[in-house]
Design a protein around this nucleic acid. Structure first.
Lengths: 224, 224
DNA sequence: CATAATTATTAGGCTCGTCTAAAAATATAT
DNA sequence: ATATATTTTTAGACGAGCCTAATAATTATG
């Protein structure tokens, strides 16, 4: 279960980048130049690292051909993401950092080496399922039970749901959310849907109901 | 107040090592070989780094001569120690790590770069004054108000005190402390001192009084 | 005080992660 | 399908940190 070879800060970042890219683009493969862009580095640098990761059996790689994480490479990438997201929860929930501030610091914290630390941190935080951006937190064995994340738009009339994140993490959107007091964990009930423009009326805890646009509802992720 | 040049992980460790050595040995100067030993590295490696730190005006250094932290070098060293100790409190108080387990992880956490993080962490922890080993936590402006740390041996008969740390952090000693339920914050009242062997009788909260040896009392740090 | 022992510095080399410039392979377009 | 454009890899170099072996400076000793 525990990997013999400890990875460097940099190696972990490459695995994470490759994992993110494959997630984002659907395909389990990605390219040298995409990785370079993701990590703000040069393609030649990436090639060097790819050979190294291939030697360590963390990626399947043939030059000029495909780049794909192996099972163990994927596992390690997910563990880094797990650490990142748990730290984000800590920063947001316990230290009151804003949604937009947590990422940068978590980029550093995710590389701290100690399984026990993460086990205890997770318990301390009450086994959260999502980070402050609503992305799911993988379990210790690397499972990413995505649950049923849907947009607010998909919620039926008279159903209630719970906010788990956003699609659009622009400052304006986040600011508006803050203004109407919607955050991770907020319970929302859908009262009405206007088919004309897709806007909807929703009720919030201890608030009169408010009306939100389709664009708004499309960008708010919830679970039922 | 904020230093223009960000220091590397390694540079921070050198500053911290130099600071610790000057504290431990009284004198504000130290030597290449002592630093090498402290950091488990070779003297030649240290020489290289000393030149680099001197270039950055963090130490005063003339080859074959003295090694001393400059004002800004000392300031930075203290800030690293501040971060280290605050993280130790977090690990012990919030995540229930043992006294002996916190150091290694804090060695990593102390290098996370974010002033705001430490400011918020300190507040979250309730502005602790001592780490789990009883060492004082420097304030944000680098002041190390040592308070009045004395050993239990120094406490007069019928006076009460509060445990803030240990001198001897060996596993046996810590285990014994755990056994008799003494930890940071424990209130102790001195009942009797036996001049014959320096042992003393003390009372603990919700416990019959116990007798402890001079060696024990010499290694327990308290404040009145 | 001159020599021996200790300590510090230099010289040269290694790995890691990065770069630029040039070459090779693949993909695209006419 | 051949020429062109793009992408990827190689070649060679660099800084940071580290090493060993050799040299220089300082300190201790007879």
């Amino acid at each position: 279960m525990k990997s013999a070879t400890l990875l460097s800060f940099t190696e972990e970042n490459y695995l994470k980048a490759i994992y993110s890219l494959t997630q984002k683009h659907g395909s389990p493969e990605t390219s040298t130049s995409h990785i370079a862009e993701q990590l703000s580095t040069k393609p030649s640098t990436v090639t060097d690292m790819l050979r190294k990761l291939a030697d360590k059996k963390l990626i399947a790689y043939e030059k000029y051909r495909k780049i794909e994480l192996t099972k163990s490479g994927k596992q390690l990438a997910i563990l880094v993401i797990r650490k990142h997201r748990l730290w984000e929860v800590f920063l947001h929930e316990k230290l009151q950092f804003g949604w937009d501030e947590v990422h940068e610091i978590a980029e550093q914290l995710e590389h701290i080496q100690s399984e026990e630390l993460i086990t205890r941190l997770e318990r301390f935080l009450g086994f959260p399922k999502f980070d402050p951006h609503g992305d799911p937190i993988p379990s210790a064995n690397g499972e990413l039970h995505a649950g049923q994340r849907i947009t607010l738009s998909d919620v039926q009339i008279n159903k209630s749901c719970e906010v788990v994140g956003v699609n659009d993490s622009s400052a304006v959107f986040l600011k508006y959310l803050q203004q109407v007091d919607i955050g991770i964990g907020t319970k929302i009930k859908v009262l009405e849907k206007i088919s004309f423009d897709g806007s909807m009326a929703i009720s919030l805890p201890r608030k009169v109901s408010i009306s939100v646009s389709k664009k708004f509802a499309d960008n708010l992720m919830v679970i039922l």
